[in-house]
Simulated assay, not measured.
Amino acid sequence: MGPAPLSAARRNGPMLFVSGQVGIDPLSGALAGSDITSQTRQVLENMKSLVEAGGLSMADVMKVGIFPVNGDDFAAMNAVYAEYFDAPFSARATVGIRLNDPRLLVEMDAIAMERQA
């Protein structure tokens, strides 16, 4: 099976759409760790890299979808998430899921938008 038919991020005008990111380092292919804290940090570092490569910043992220495997991990995930965003915070939704790799604990996607003058 080849690579997934998707782009990590796509920009259209002022908007940037970031595909779901998981706790895997894109350069090494290694899992960031076996706990929600390390995986959440890697997810958000992946997201940040893509947002910045699109010419935007984390302050431009308007919407985040959060997809944890275990609802009991929410507080720890949320603590790391709070390190990456300042007020006014992005809109977000959290929906529990099962990922295709049992080692993965959380996935997040995002929509960022260039600020209007």
Rank of each mutant, 00 (worst) to 15 (best):
S49W: 07
D86I: 03
V95M: 13
Q42I: 03
T94F: 01
Q42F: 08
G20F: 02
L56Q: 05
A4E: 11
V18G: 09
I111F: 04
E114Q: 15
A8E: 14
E83N: 14
G23N: 05
V18H: 08
G96Q: 14
E83F: 00
N70R: 13
F17A: 13
G20K: 07
L56W: 15
L50Q: 14
Q39Y: 15
F67S: 14
T40H: 10
N78K: 05
D25Q: 03
S90W: 12
V61T: 08
S90R: 04
L105D: 02
K63D: 13
K48T: 10
E83I: 05
Q116W: 12
V18S: 05
S38F: 01
S57I: 02
F17C: 13
G2A: 11
A75D: 10
S57P: 10
E107M: 10
A9L: 03
P26T: 13
L31W: 08
D60A: 12
T94L: 10
A112Q: 10
S28G: 15
R41K: 14
L6W: 00
I24Y: 06
N70H: 15
Y81G: 02
P102T: 06
A32E: 05
I111C: 09
L104G: 07
L44W: 09
L31E: 12
D86H: 11
P68E: 03
G13H: 09
I111L: 14
M47P: 02
I24D: 00
P5G: 04
V95L: 09
P3L: 09
E83R: 09
I111V: 15
E83M: 07
A8S: 09
G33K: 05
M62L: 13
M58V: 07
S19K: 03
G71W: 06
L6E: 13
A75L: 10
L44N: 06
V106I: 15
G55E: 14
Q39E: 07
E52S: 14
R11E: 09
Q116A: 12
D73Q: 04
A117K: 04
D101F: 00
S49K: 05
P5M: 06
S49T: 08
N100V: 04
G96H: 11
P26K: 12
A91M: 13
R41H: 14
K48F: 03
E114A: 13
G55F: 06
L104T: 04
E107L: 07
P3A: 08
Q39T: 07
Y84W: 09
L6F: 05
E83W: 01
I36Y: 01
E114G: 06
N46D: 05
A59F: 00
R92G: 00
I36H: 00
A112K: 06
A76I: 01
S7H: 12
N12P: 00
Y81I: 01
G71H: 08
S38V: 02
A112Y: 13
E107K: 03
S49V: 00
R115C: 02
Q21F: 00
I97V: 15
A79N: 08
Q21K: 13
A8C: 04
D109Y: 06
A112L: 12
Y84V: 04
N78S: 14
D72H: 12
D109F: 07
Y84D: 03
E107P: 00
V43G: 01
V61G: 02
F89Y: 15
A8V: 05
I97P: 00
